[in-house]
């Protein structure tokens, strides 16, 4: 063997031995936790969800089909000098294409939050790790006297409701609905019909546009949206006498606290995003994990009412209220 060949073998051997290592795109796996809880002012059934991170065998996360929810955690919320302990529960999962087990969640049905109150959270996981958070519930909303009172408004084609709050950076979600009764097979059934702010044309169809959470302190409803919503109550039913519309409309405005508002701001205001995933890092106020601990309060505006002649012009009956 020549010297050159010997040197060549040595190099090849060194390269083959010394740097032969599989490439792995993952870092070291560290389990993380995501907690979501938005406390409500308008009902005492408060819910929370708790999940852990997972690592699928391959590169497709959907191949991982083990429910990542964590059960058995100790979840406590401090509110008004009282500690509320959440219990764990589960409901049947509608979509079982990925996870087969029931959907797990935590709940407490003994409190609802007021305005400008401190709320604190501590989650003790079964492995001893703790998640913590705190927030301040949103302040009171007051409706401005310049808000509309009657529908149809005089000399305008819009219905506007304006409100105020002392909080800054608050996101709001307004909702306007028609309350009505419908006779179905002789029985009177109470119903509500949400009114969009406007309709937009998409193709050949009119698509309703409903409010989404945003920082505006007013909402404007186009009268043609109100008209169309009123028409849609009976749709193609020729017997308009089966319908009776209540004098008072239902207008409510939800005010989110600072963490929820920031989260909504980071997600573009999609309220369905309140279920936080572990891999979403848009916003988090959970110490020791990811997620969102916040609250919202709801205020109703009760002065908005229909005129009797107006409702009767649609062929509907009119229900007078005090």
């Amino acid at each position: 063997m020549s010297v050159r060949k010997a040197i060549g073998f040595i190099f090849i051997g060194v390269f083959l031995i010394s740097c032969n290592e599989d490439f792995n795109p993952y870092g070291d796996y560290v389990e993380k936790y995501a907690f979501t809880c938005i406390l409500k002012s308008n009902e005492n059934f408060q819910t929370a969800t708790l999940f852990k991170s997972y690592r699928p065998d391959g590169y497709d996360p959907y191949t991982y089909t083990t429910d990542p929810s964590i059960v058995g955690a100790d979840i406590r919320v401090w509110y008004n000098d009282t500690v509320f302990v959440f219990s764990d529960s589960s409901v049947t999962r509608e979509d079982t294409s990925r996870y087969k087990t029931p959907f797990s969640f935590y709940y407490n049905n003994k409190f609802f939050v007021g305005n400008r109150k401190t709320i604190e959270l501590e989650v003790l996981l079964p492995n001893g790790k703790r998640l913590r958070s705190n927030s301040l519930t949103p302040g009171q909303i007051t409706f401005d006297n310049n808000s509309e009172v009657i529908i149809p408004p005089i000399g305008k084609n819009i219905v506007q409701v304006i409100w105020k709050t002392l909080d800054e950076g608050t996101f709001f979600l307004p909702k306007l609905a028609i309350r009505y009764e419908q006779k179905i097979n002789g029985e009177v059934v109470y119903k509500e019909k949400d009114i969009p702010t406007r309709y937009v044309t998409q193709g050949n169809e009119l698509t309703p546009v409903y409010p989404v959470p945003n920082a505006s302190i007013t909402v404007v409803y186009q009268m043609n949206a109100v008209i169309k919503a009123l028409q849609e109550i009976s749709a193609s039913d020729p017997n308009k006498n089966n319908y009776a519309v209540f004098q008072n409309l239902l207008f409510s405005c939800i005010a989110f606290d600072q963490p929820s508002s920031r989260y909504l701001s980071s997600t573009g205001g999609n309220v369905d995003d309140l279920t936080v995933s572990v891999d979403v890092a848009d916003y988090s106020n959970i110490e020791g994990g990811f997620g969102l601990f916040g609250s919202y309060s709801q205020k109703k505006y009760t002065r908005l009412r229909f005129l009797q002649d107006y409702i009767e012009s649609f062929g509907y009956n009119f229900i007078v209220e005090d």
């Binding site: 040197i7 040595i10 190099f11 060194v14 390269f15 010394s18 740097c19 290592e21 870092g27 070291d28 560290v30 492995n127 001893g128 790790k129 703790r130």
Partner: peptide, 26 residues
């Protein structure tokens, strides 16, 4: 040959690895 081995050992397998901070046990 010795120096080649030494250089390869020192430099040849040096990798940039991103690591998450090690979480302490509760």
């Amino acid at each position: 040959t010795f120096y080649v081995w030494l250089i390869l050992i020192l430099n040849g397998c040096d990798k940039q690895v991103s690591r998450s901070p090690v979480e302490s046990e509760p």
